[in-house]
C-alpha cells in the first residue's frame, strides 16, 4: 500500500518503522513450512490478493516429514513406518477430500501483508521482516 505524502513524512520521523520494500509498499516476506500445514485453508481465505490458494494436489512429503507432536504427527509416523521409500512428487486429491491439499503460494502476487501468517493456527505460514540490505536499496529508488 503506497504511502500518501503525509504518510511519507511520518514514516521519515519514525526511528524503526518497517522500511518500504522494493515493491514500494509495506511488506514482509512469507515463508511456508509445509510440514506443519494441517490443510485448514484459513490462509487462503484471509489472503487479499489470491496469492495463497488451496491447490488440488497433495505432496505426501508434508505427512512424511510432519513432526511427531504436530496435528498430523500420528499420520506421518504411520506413513513412515510402512513406507518402503520416501514419497516422490505429489498426488491428485479427490474432490471430497478437503483437508489434505497443499497450499499454492504465488510470490509474485504476494504483497507481504502477513494476513496468512496471522490466520494460520499452526505456524505453517510465517511472515519475516524484509532483510536490511533490501531496505537500503529500496530507500533510494523510493
Amino acid at each position: 500500500m503506497p504511502l500518501t505524502a503525509r504518510g511519507e513524512a511520518i514514516f521519515e520521523r519514525l526511528p524503526n518503522a518497517a522500511p518500504r520494500t522494493s515493491t514500494g509498499s509495506i511488506g514482509c516476506q512469507i515463508v511456508r513450512h509445509e510440514e506443519l500445514c494441517i490443510g485448514c485453508g484459513r490462509c487462503a481465505s484471509a489472503c487479499p490478493t489470491g496469492a495463497t490458494s488451496k491447490g488440488d494436489m497433495f505432496d505426501p512429503m508434508q505427512l512424511y516429514s510432519a513432526p511427531p507432536e504436530s496435528r498430523r504427527g500420528a499420520l506421518g509416523a504411520a506413513l513412515r513406518t510402512i513406507a518402503r521409500h520416501q514419497p516422490s512428487g505429489s498426488i491428485a486429491v479427490p474432490d471430497r477430500v478437503a483437508a489434505f491439499r497443499t497450499i499454492v503460494f504465488d510470490a509474485a502476487r504476494c504483497i507481504g501483508c502477513g494476513a496468512c501468517a496471522r490466520a494460520c493456527p499452526t505456524g505453517a505460514a510465517e511472515a519475516l521482516p524484509v532483510p536490511a540490505a533490501e531496505i537500503a536499496s529500496a530507500g533510494m529508488n523510493g
Binding site: P60, L79, A83, R84, Q86, P87, P94, R96
Partner: peptide, 20 residues
C-alpha cells in the same frame, strides 16, 4: 459412502507414493 470412496482413493495414492 461417497466421502469414504474419495478417502480410500486418496489413501491408496498415498501408499503408492511410498511404494506400498
Amino acid at each position: 459412502n461417497l466421502h469414504a470412496l474419495d478417502r480410500i482413493e486418496f489413501a491408496r495414492a498415498l501408499l503408492e507414493s511410498v511404494g506400498v
